[in-house]
Nucleic acid binder design. Structure first.
Lengths: 221, 221
DNA sequence: CGCTGAATGATACATATGTATCAAAAAGGA
DNA sequence: TCCTTTTTGATACATATGTATCATTCAGCG
């Protein structure tokens, strides 16, 4: 133990937190253990004590973030039984998008590796991606059967479109800030994006007021 | 000139082609000039003669790929005047998706840098991303006014959702192949994805036969 | 106090990498 | 053929990086 204040993190946690940030920003190849150690304010030689290697540290980040994702998405699991299929989709999708807004690092890291198709990807795929995707595609197909999602789109494509649509905008946060002056991480923007996803994927049965075009293009508040 | 057969590429072109492949696979940080030179079958010392630096080579890749994108998307520009707004969207989107299927490297490289937010990103943003996004968001807004796209979604969000939905699936090609046994680069799959995008974003006015669920989940052919 | 094991800090080292240098080779023209 | 320019190949070098080593420090405990 380093401190008893409860405010400070121990070295292991500091390293994990810093590693999430650095791997999420520059990817595995772009990250150096010295950079991570610096951010964590830890001597770089000490990393080896807590994590056997750079790769071990990376795996710990993945496990940590997927754990958080699991918790976030399942936080209302107890209420699912009393929900309609449509309400369940809305519940899960909303939490999923909010998670990605709060921890964009997970999908950044996964995207890095998905593109890279490195040896790490096998581990990532076997332990997290495949289970996640398989369940998700099955759920999409089920939602289609239940009339929640459009039926005339292959479930596989709809799933990948859905994931991309819900996550990708947060990867482009810096670009959106620079080019459009919008902070996509702002709570109101996150909810706006959730609403956009629902309107596109779930349709809007009841007629809604159609907002002014300029407001839609560059929303304020 | 190296050869007169016309089949061989000169050193400069070979390097560019190899660089596109390598940068598209492992990103800027992950790529080494020796790796690129090896793939191009060129002595790594010679890179410096054709490209002043690794970064120069990278910039050349970007310019090359965006040039191809421009050409691909505008190939039917002459016919645009005689098209309805909806037909124009269909035409451009279709070519855009086919381009991404043929050259997934562009969006892979852009995604790497978008996440990374490196110093290279400023150059990329100023020269390509911002012009591209600005035009695209304006076009989305126009298409909304014309009733082609749904009006009740902010143009900014709709644009990013659209780009993500059309490109992201090709970045996950290896994963999709491994987990679902589907080659997303196959022509039929590409057209299927285009169809999926059209159905989701443009809606389907006329009633269609709804295919069998299992066929949709794991399409064959 | 003295001991033990956990944790840290400093340093070493082999390797990979971007870039620079320069001689050799090839090409093109008079 | 001879000369000039373009292009290539081989090597050198400083730096960054992952990992290993080991002495030192610190906490807990008898």
């Amino acid at each position: 133990m380093v401190m008893s204040t409860g405010l400070e993190l121990d070295t292991r946690s500091k390293l994990l937190k810093a590693a999430v940030t650095v791997f999420g920003k520059v990817g595995y190849a772009g990250a150096s253990v010295r950079q991570i150690a610096d951010l964590a304010d830890v001597n770089h030689g000490s990393i080896r004590y807590h994590y056997a290697s750079k790769r071990d540290l990376w795996c710990a980040c993945i496990s940590y973030l997927f754990g958080l994702l699991e918790t976030a998405v399942h936080q209302d699991e107890a209420k699912w039984a009393s929900m309609t299929p449509r309400q369940r989709i809305i519940n899960v999708t909303g939490h999923y998008i909010r998670f990605n807004a709060r921890y964009p690092e997970l999908h950044r890291i996964v995207t890095f590796e998905t593109i890279h198709q490195s040896e790490r990807m096998d581990w990532l795929n076997d332990n997290f991606i495949r289970p996640f995707s398989s369940r998700a595609v099955a759920n999409v197909a089920l939602a289609q059967e239940q009339g929640v999602y459009p039926k005339n789109i292959p479930a596989l494509n709809l799933h990948y479109i859905n994931v991309a649509a819900t996550t990708s905008i947060f990867m482009s946060a810096a670009e959106i800030q620079k080019n459009f002056g919008v902070d996509i991480f702002d709570d109101a923007e996150v909810e706006r994006h959730i609403d956009a996803i629902f309107r596109l994927f779930l349709g809007v049965s009841e007629p809604r007021a159609e907002p002014d075009f300029r407001t839609m293009l560059r929303p304020e508040q």
